[in-house]
């Protein structure tokens, strides 16, 4: 009889313990579900800028990497269509609006009547306006696709009349170029100047050097150099000197081309595409 009573007591104990375990498990389930929901909501808020919440501690990292491309021509520069007058050797067009006519008698004119050689070609009055519109420092580079060489973009055999390499680029701080279209007004001082320890790696510099911090400058600001398949324009993969401050966050990339009188006219639009990359340290 006593044994039977003990068995009943043991059965009750097991039931109580199981009920307790079940209650603990249920509370745990609810708590975990609540935490996952909280975490999920935090993650859903992410829009490129990482922001995380873990329990009682909040960590918010807000960095926005943005490089805008704008200016008078937006994302397209068109030199129009036309031909070179038979009495000329070449026509030179610059995206800063300058036209140079190279006459057959050897005289080159860039003032009134300059379009005589260039006929209906157009010299745009603005280049590609690059601006750091994020809130973190950037390095800037480009890659070129399409007809990136003189031979493929324009062509022609009168090579002695080509200015430079025939298809060239230069970068100028917008405080100097003063092209309109910047967010927050035109720059008032030079961009890509880094500051602090970045100062030695600063200024617009068209280069392919990977050891940028110790190498000499490639092509300094406002100087033309040949268009290639790609270049760093400001900083590199480890140096980010283009500040996001509205007073010095932009530059203009201009394009200069020389169309020779014997450039092949195949009736097909020739173009190259420049993809500008703004890179920031995570």
């Amino acid at each position: 009889m006593k044994k039977l009573s003990q068995k009943i007591m043991q059965g009750k104990t097991v039931v109580i313990l199981l009920a307790f375990a079940l209650a603990v498990s249920f509370v745990n389930l609810g708590f975990t579900y609540y935490k996952i929901n909280l975490f999920g909501e935090t993650v859903n808020l992410l829009t490129g800028a990482p922001s995380f919440s873990f329990g009682e501690t909040n960590i918010t990292i807000t960095s926005n990497t943005a490089l805008s491309l704008g200016g008078g021509n937006g994302t397209a520069i068109s030199f129009g269509n036309g031909f070179i007058n038979a009495s000329c050797n070449f026509c030179q067009l610059d995206s800063n609006g300058v036209i140079v006519s190279g006459y057959g008698n050897g005289s080159n004119l860039s003032a009134g009547g300059q379009s005589q050689c260039c006929t209906t070609f157009v010299a745009p009055t603005s280049g590609f306006l690059l601006e750091n519109t994020g809130n973190t420092n950037l390095s800037v580079g480009y890659t070129c696709t399409g007809n990136c060489t003189f031979a493929s973009y324009l062509g022609g055999a009168r090579g002695r009349y080509i200015a430079g390499t025939g298809v060239e680029i230069k970068v100028t701080s917008n405080s100097v170029a003063t092209q309109s279209g910047e967010e927050g007004g035109t720059d008032t001082s030079s961009s890509c100047v880094g500051g602090g320890t970045l100062f030695r790696d600063s200024k617009w510099n068209i280069t392919n050097s990977t050891a940028y911090t110790t190498s000499s400058f490639g092509t300094p600001e406002a100087v033309y150099t040949a268009l290639m398949s790609g270049h760093w324009l400001c900083g590199n993969s480890s140096s980010y000197p283009l500040d996001s401050n509205n007073a010095y966050d932009a530059a203009v990339l201009d394009i200069n081309i020389t169309i020779l009188a014997d450039a092949p006219a195949n009736g097909i639009k020739s173009s190259f595409r420049l993809t500008f990359n703004g890179t920031s340290p995570g």
């Binding site: 520069i77 690059l130 994020g134 995570g282």
Partner: peptide, 25 residues
């Protein structure tokens, strides 16, 4: 994407095009 060491990089891209059409004289 947390990357507290700063090893990761973020990149913004934009593409522009320069075009020309040469006609027969």
């Amino acid at each position: 994407p947390i990357s507290p060491s700063g090893a990761a990089v973020s990149t913004a891209k934009n593409t522009g095009e320069a075009s020309i059409l040469i006609l027969p004289r």
